[in-house]
């Protein structure tokens, strides 16, 4: 999945700008797809590859900033690089707060754009990676039995086996067996590793 070639989506109503950007992006070996409007972009299903969105702030109908908002609300996490004919500070602030990677006033230096795109793709790629890792971790966590889950949460909170056995009213030995099975199921190499996994699971809410 990580090796899939990334794609850059360009939304700009000016066809010549869009075409030029597509050509530029392709010249550095990235795939580029161009859309005239936000609606058009939203209609098209995107491949599950690392991607970023080069978005013109000013668009007919739904504006660039509105599109960003909609994507955030829909949980469609795609890094956005804004380009604009004339941007002002409130606009920039709003875009950056909503998680924009970069806000580039036209005409921009190609390197700035390409850097921003690279950064966005890297960001997307790492985000995707993280999301994939999280997903695996959660699946592993969900493969635990309820009892194993209880033991996992208490062990991860730093309790010694003895105390865990006392809390759960079980023998220390039984706890050890559970721990071994938990370590295996969770593919943890060491106890700190397991603790880190628990932290990750806690910080990221369950999608279900």
């Amino acid at each position: 999945m990580n090796d899939a070639s990334p794609v850059v989506f360009v939304v700009d109503d000016d066809p010549s700008v869009a075409t030029a950007l597509k050509r530029l992006i392709r010249s550095v070996g990235l795939d580029a797809q161009i859309f005239r409007t936000a609606e058009e972009f939203l209609r098209v299903a995107r491949p599950e590859v690392p991607a970023c969105l080069v978005l013109d702030v000013r668009l007919p109908g739904v504006s660039g900033l509105d599109l960003q908002q909609k994507l955030v609300e829909a949980g469609l996490l795609i890094p956005v690089v804004f380009i604009t004919g004339h941007g002002d500070i409130p606009m920039t602030v709003r875009a950056m707060k909503a998680g924009a990677v970069e806000f580039l006033p036209k005409p921009f230096r190609e390197q700035d754009l390409l850097d921003a795109i690279q950064r966005a793709i890297w960001q997307d790629r790492s985000a995707r990676q993280q999301r994939a890792e999280m997903l695996a971790l959660r699946r592993r966590y969900e493969s635990l039995t309820p009892r194993e889950g209880e033991v996992f949460r208490l062990v991860a909170s730093g309790m010694p086996n003895k105390q865990v056995a006392a809390t759960l009213g079980m023998s220390e030995k039984t706890i050890k067996v559970h721990r071994g099975r938990i370590m295996h199921k969770m593919q943890a190499e060491s106890l700190p590793d397991l603790v880190r996994m628990a932290g990750k699971l806690e910080s990221t809410p369950s999608p279900s």
């Binding site: 700008v17 030029a20 530029l24 000013r58």
Partner: peptide, 25 residues
């Protein structure tokens, strides 16, 4: 002025982008 600047910026942006693309191509 702002709108006009935009009107000129658009083709300029495209020109710069195309020129850079040519260099790379």
């Amino acid at each position: 002025t702002a709108s006009i600047a935009h009107e000129i910026n658009q083709p300029l942006t495209a020109i710069v982008a195309n020129a850079n693309a040519c260099q790379r191509l």
